[in-house]
Each structure stands twice: as structure tokens, then as C-alpha cells.
Design a protein around this nucleic acid. Structure first.
Lengths: 200, 200
DNA sequence: GTCTATAACGAGATAGAC
DNA sequence: GTCTATCTCGTTATAGAC
């Protein structure tokens, strides 16, 4: 077991900046905001992340890494495809419950204003999600646990789109229920025709 | 028939600002940007829209109005529910083709930073869309043209979410195909079990 | 690694002439 | 209704002491 130290300054900066991006967007937070929340002067932030672009790139890459780790954790617990999809949707629910948007969903909106290294990292996030879901969907179909038409990658893209959109609309309309509804409809559709709702 | 004059300055300002919001977001465009594109000094903009909040409110309300007009046009052409849903999806495709995000989808991302009058207008946009879709879905189901479980409003919310999310992910991943795929899957799901893809 | 101080620029907004 | 000029503030970023 690795020794766990209290988070260093760079990590605390990333934690604060991550929250700010997910709530406000990349163009609507400043070094001054981070400075206040971390309890360190603005100039000191530049020692850890020389430019806002550097900070942004580090944010997306850490987020991608953490998300991939969460997906790996779902696979380790070795349930069926339906359970994995439920837990995938739960990742989104957890974010929304914190009144945040998925960081890469947020950055997808900001994409026209992002520096190139951030853009390609955001694109990679979606590609990684689609790849993981494609595997889950393909396996679930093979085992007869899931039912859907067309290639797994197309359905995987739809799952990501729908969950991201449901978070977005949930925030825009002030009704978190949109995400629950989306997760419910996607799952019940994949369960096939004689679908029963899951137990409470 | 009403006489159609060339657009006044206020309208030209709104046209430019609308594009900027849909591409860059509300926090990532400035009066200077609008000034350049319209060919008028920054100070003159304040004559038409005293504050950026005023401009923002006017933008969302004009957008809502235009969207409602587009929905009314779809109803006037009196096709079936499936055709109406296809044309609804086309509204989104047209926006994405211009490399824009739905204005209210964009503002939903920015929502934490928006002045209150804009926030409630964004929420109203989604409510209007869900209301319109609910009617189309309910009628289509009644006529046996559509097949889906649960209340029409829930499915309507899912349709909006999925299309908004598909636009978002399409931009974030640089692949417009996400929107086509989402539209295709939603429509084929609503067509019911023995679905055939529509003709090319 | 953190600080104070400041540079250099762009933001939203106002005053007042024409 | 548009202009020039200006104000005030916030932004990212740097210099240099400790």
C-alpha cells in the first residue's frame, strides 16, 4: 500500500480550478478566484502553472486519467453489462449532484476559445468513453444481456451524448430529473423489449 | 403583407452577438468583438443595449421567439408525427452545420455566471421545447404512429437532452456525426420495434 | 515556494460633442 | 444615433525580494 501524503499545492490548485471550470466554464474563472480559494497569492500560482493554458491542459489530463480509473474500477467489480452501464450513469449523477457539469462537456461548449492542446485532450476524453462503452455494449449483446441494433460504437456515442446532454439540460432548466430520466430510458431501451424497471 | 425593411442597427447587433454566443459562449465575447463585426463604435452599442445583461436578455428572447416560430412552421406543414420529429432534428442539424451550438445549450453551460433574467429565459426555452414535443409525441402515439413507454413529457425531455448533448459532443470531439447518429437512434426507437431505416 | 509590486492589456460602461 | 475620449476594474503574466 502506497503512503498517502496530504495533497501538495499543485493538487490543491487543480482541485479548486477543476470545480471552477465545471461550475463556471474555462473562460469564467480567473487566477484571482483560485488564489482566494487556495489561500495563496496569484503570483504563486504561476510558479505551479506558468500560464492558464498549462493549467487547463493539466486539468483535462488529470480528469481523463481519473475517469479512466473510475471505468477500470467498474470493470474490476465484475458485474454484468447492465450493472456496468448503471454505474457508468452514476458517474454522471454524482457530478450533477455536486451542481457541476462534466468537465469535458463544459469544455466542449468552450471549445472555440480553447488552446489547441486542450481541444485534442477533450476530444480524446470522448473517444475513450466511447471505446469503453463500445466494449461493454458489445459484450453485453454477445451474452444476450443487451439488445440494440447497429454497431456498438454508434450506440456508445449515443449513450455519451444523451448523458452529457441530460446534464446540460438539467442545469439549464434547473431540473436534475432530466439526467435520471435519460439514464432510465437508455438503460430500459438496452434491456430490450420486455423490459422491467430496476428495483428500488 | 408587412413591408420588410433592411435590418436596423439593433437587429444587426443581435445577429452578430447571437453568432458569437453560439460559437464562443456568453463570457467569451465582448462589445469590442461586436463593434468590429457590425462596423460601429463600442459606445454606440450601449445606445441600443445599455448593458451586456440587456443584450443577453434580448438575445435569448429573440432566439426563443424564432424557435417557437420554427416549431409553428413545422405544424403548419401538417405531416405526421415522424415527419415533425425529423424536421425538429433538422433544426439542430442546421445549427451544427454552421459550426454553432444551440444558443440555449451554450447558455445552459454558462448558467452559473448568467444574470437571473437570462437564466429563467433559458429554462423557459427548454420548457417550451418539451411542451411542443410532448404534444407531437402524444398525438403520434394515439394515432399508432409512434411507440414508446411512459409519459410523453419524459420522452420529450429525453429527445431534447439527447439532441443538445449530441451537438455538444459533436463539437467537443470534432465529429458532427454524433448528431446524425442521435437523431437516427431516437427516431428509429420511436418508430417502434419493427423499425426500418428511412430512405436516402 | 511564496511574497509584494507592477506591467500590459481588455473588459463593461459613461460623458458629452456632433 | 454615432462619435471620441476616458474611467474603473479585472485579467494574465512578470520581476525581483525573501
Amino acid at each position: 500500500m502506497t503512503t498517502k501524503r496530504s495533497p501538495g499545492t499543485a493538487d490543491r490548485i487543480l482541485d479548486v480550478a477543476e470545480r471552477l471550470v465545471q461550475v463556471r466554464g474555462f473562460n469564467a474563472f480567473s487566477y484571482a478566484d483560485v488564489s482566494k480559494a487556495v489561500g495563496i497569492q496569484k503570483a504563486s500560482l504561476h510558479h505551479h502553472f506558468a500560464t492558464k493554458t498549462d493549467l487547463g491542459v493539466a486539468l483535462v489530463e488529470r480528469y481523463r486519467h481519473a475517469f479512466l480509473a473510475a471505468l477500470a474500477a467498474i470493470e474490476d467489480d465484475a458485474g454484468g453489462a447492465l450493472e456496468r452501464l448503471e454505474r457508468y450513469a452514476d458517474l454522471y449523477r454524482t457530478v450533477l449532484r455536486k451542481r457541476r457539469m462534466c468537465m469535458c462537456g463544459m469544455l466542449a461548449a468552450d471549445v472555440a476559445t480553447l488552446p489547441e492542446p486542450m481541444r485534442s485532450s477533450v476530444a480524446a476524453f470522448f473517444a475513450e468513453n466511447v471505446a469503453w462503452l463500445s466494449r461493454v455494449l458489445a459484450e453485453g449483446k454477445k451474452r444476450g444481456e443487451l439488445r440494440f441494433a447497429g454497431p456498438p460504437a454508434a450506440m456508445a456515442g449515443f449513450v455519451v451524448s444523451s448523458l452529457e446532454g441530460a446534464m446540460l439540460v438539467a442545469r439549464g432548466s434547473g431540473d436534475p430529473g432530466h439526467l435520471d430520466e435519460a439514464a432510465r430510458l437508455i438503460l430500459s431501451s438496452l434491456r430490450g423489449v420486455g423490459a422491467r424497471t430496476r428495483r428500488a
